[in-house]
């Protein structure tokens, strides 16, 4: 173990963690307004990515067009999930929404294998340059783009929430949905917009992940749901800052685990972490209050 290894792992983890952070931001927005778990979040992203890669394979679409297809695809599939799994059920029927979103997960995977039957599909790479050398450390340029995109989107979401009228409405719905309705906010419309926005953000994350891998399988759906979920729980439910911190931390921990304990241990870290969190620290890093509040509301309703 050397200082260079530690630094390189941390750097690699930070870059991969950026994609987890982006996934978690979308996840936490959906959880915040709905107070229900959307298991179809990852598969929604997968559907967007598959539409993008289908455009790439069959039409030879350039990378930028693929990005647009992925974002719009994920947003529309997100709308579909919201309509089918969330809008019809009230907050009182959390299990119904969750189980319904599981059903759509299966449906979206089936649809994806019909669209592109082979297991592995090519995805247009983001930047095919040589890694940058910073002293003894190596840094992939496409990873740098991923980190920059994450910070940009996190900044934009923070601005939206803090400074705009829609942001005020979203926070009001997260905070106290009944009061939001009473002051005249169209709660269902805000929920739908947030859901679509979060799915689109997930689409960006999915695009970046697939582009840095240069290939994609339908497993990216499950992968995105689980990584996003763990990163969200780590940071604390319903907090954008927490989601970013949780995602970056998860990435760094995984990178170290892979280096010191072996690649087969990497995913166990996420699950082990989720278990420890739920057992001992259910509020997450920054969301203790958020969780208390959600539970308090749950008791009231």
């Amino acid at each position: 173990m050397t200082a260079v290894d530690l630094a390189q792992n941390t750097l690699d983890g930070l870059m991969v963690g950026a994609s987890y952070a982006l996934l978690a931001v979308g996840f936490t927005l959906i959880f915040g307004v709905m107070r229900r778990l959307n298991l179809a979040y990852g598969p929604t992203i997968m559907a967007g990515v598959y539409l993008g890669t289908a455009a790439f394979i069959s039409l030879g679409a350039p990378t930028l067009v693929v990005l647009v297809v992925v974002i719009i695809g994920a947003a529309l599939v997100g709308l579909y999930v919201e309509r089918l799994c969330f809008r019809p059920f009230g907050e009182g029927a959390r299990a119904a929404s969750m189980v319904a979103s599981f059903a759509l997960w299966m449906q979206l995977e089936e649809a994806a294998t019909h669209l592109l039957p082979q297991h592995m599909n090519p995805f247009p790479p983001l930047l095919a340059t040589q890694p940058l050398e910073i002293g003894p450390l190596l840094l992939r340029a496409d990873h740098l783009v991923m980190l920059a995109a994450t910070l940009l989107i996190a900044g934009a979401v923070t601005y939206l929430l803090a400074r705009t009228k829609l942001g005020l409405a979203i926070r009001a719905v997260i905070d106290q949905p009944r009061a939001a309705a009473i002051v005249g906010i169209h709660v269902e419309r805000v929920m739908m917009l947030t859901f679509v926005l979060a799915s689109a953000i997930g689409g960006v994350a999915g695009f970046l992940i697939a582009a840095t891998d240069g290939q994609v399988t339908h497993m990216i759906g499950m992968w995105a749901t689980t990584k996003g979920l763990v990163a969200m729980m780590l940071g604390g439910l319903g907090s954008v800052k927490g989601a970013i911190a949780g995602g970056l931390l998860l990435g760094i921990l995984e990178a170290h685990a892979q280096w010191f304990l072996g690649p087969q241990v990497r995913d166990m870290v996420a699950w082990g972490l989720l278990f420890v969190l739920l057992a001992f620290w259910p509020g997450g890093l920054m969301g203790a209050k958020a969780l208390d509040r959600t539970m308090a509301v749950g008791r009231r309703v």
């Binding site: 009228k165 926070r171 009061a179």
Partner: peptide, 21 residues
């Protein structure tokens, strides 16, 4: 409303802004 139902995680000023939504 009964039990006031202010927006607990928003500032007093933001609660008022929300009232004028």
């Amino acid at each position: 409303p009964e039990n006031r139902l202010v927006f607990p995680q928003m500032s007093v000023a933001e609660n008022l802004e929300a009232g004028a939504y």
